[in-house]
Amino acid sequence: MAWLKKLVGAVVILGGVGAVAGWVLSAPVTLDRETLAKLGPGDAARGKRIFYAGGCTSCHAKPGSQGDARLQLVGGLELKTPFGTFVPPNISQDPRDGIGAWSVEDLANAMLKGVSPSGEHFYPAFPYASYARMNPADIGDLYAFLKTLPAVAGKAAGNSLGFPFNIRRGIGLWKLLYLSDQPAVAFPEGKPDPVMAGRYLVEGPGHCGECHTPRDLAGGTKKNEWLAGAVAAEGNGVVPNITSGEGGLAEWSEADIANYLETGFTPDFDSVGGAMVDVQRNMAELTPQDRAAIAAYLKAIPAHPNGYPARKKTAN
């Protein structure tokens, strides 16, 4: 029986080592001093552009709000996913219920590293896996703009997650696989400036890949099917392919895409619908140059087949 005791002892030791390693590897990581120094003083006018490019109102405005009420960022929208229901929080300037007490460094760590001021992981339903590609100076500008918006009291409901997804520490291991500041699409040298500007807007603040790219079992986006379309997170319907090939935007010109982002009308005069209504409303706030850059990028990226199953045909 001595061998059995040794085996049990070895298993216990290995289990302990694995647990310690997992705990260390899953620890929240915050920004270094060099990156924090790039945040700058912040410019609210430039920050307004980042605010709308990032679609902050789409998730953080009170559901159903219209007009200026959409700038009351009280949260409350329910995002139903296979992992549970996530509820975007109040990010208004209320110091108790919102983020009014946050520093610019707090906002930068949240958006670029997915770490809260208290040192906990945020769930990646908050799309920091895309925001990680943003320039720190843009975070500083966004912070300055957020400071101009109203404080609204009231906490949004909490997330509703079952085990093991309710253990935030595990998100640290997810980040090791999926959190990177590298671009999703690497272009060769010499790409025109509009394409590169569009890449920044789409892959970073615009976080288009969060909905338009298929995900694997762990919830990470599949970079080899970037923007190929996906089954909607709630499981009903699909988010379309927006690559440049068949099934995507092959028949759309850059002007068609830019016009759609501005007006909400497709080339065949259909109108925007579903969750894209809020996205298009935000895109309309950008400059014509920004919308043209987004269009140039979408026409320049590799084409992919649809990243979702073909719809079954119904009998007549």
Rank of each mutant, 00 (worst) to 15 (best):
S130Y: 07
D141P: 00
A137F: 00
Y131K: 09
V152L: 04
F122W: 08
A184E: 14
G158R: 10
P136V: 03
G162C: 01
S118W: 10
Y143C: 10
A129H: 13
D141A: 01
P150R: 07
K147T: 08
M134K: 07
M134I: 06
L177V: 14
I139P: 00
Y131Q: 05
A151M: 05
I167P: 08
Y178Q: 05
G170M: 15
S130K: 05
I139F: 00
F165E: 14
G172Q: 08
G170T: 13
L176W: 01
V152H: 05
A132Q: 12
Y128K: 04
K113Y: 10
E189N: 14
P183W: 10
G170W: 13
L176G: 05
D181P: 12
Y178W: 08
V152M: 02
L146T: 04
E189I: 05
F163W: 03
G140T: 00
P136R: 05
D141N: 02
A151K: 13
F165S: 13
S160H: 13
Y143F: 15
M134N: 01
P124K: 06
T148Y: 03
P117L: 08
G198N: 00
P117F: 09
S180Q: 14
A151R: 14
L179H: 09
N159F: 04
D181R: 15
L179F: 07
P150V: 06
F145A: 02
A151C: 09
A144N: 00
A151P: 07
A125V: 15
N135H: 09
T148D: 06
F122R: 14
D181V: 10
S130N: 04
R168P: 10
L149W: 03
F122S: 11
K191Y: 07
F145P: 03
M134L: 03
P117M: 12
K175N: 13
R168Y: 11
F187I: 01
A125E: 14
K155F: 05
V115C: 09
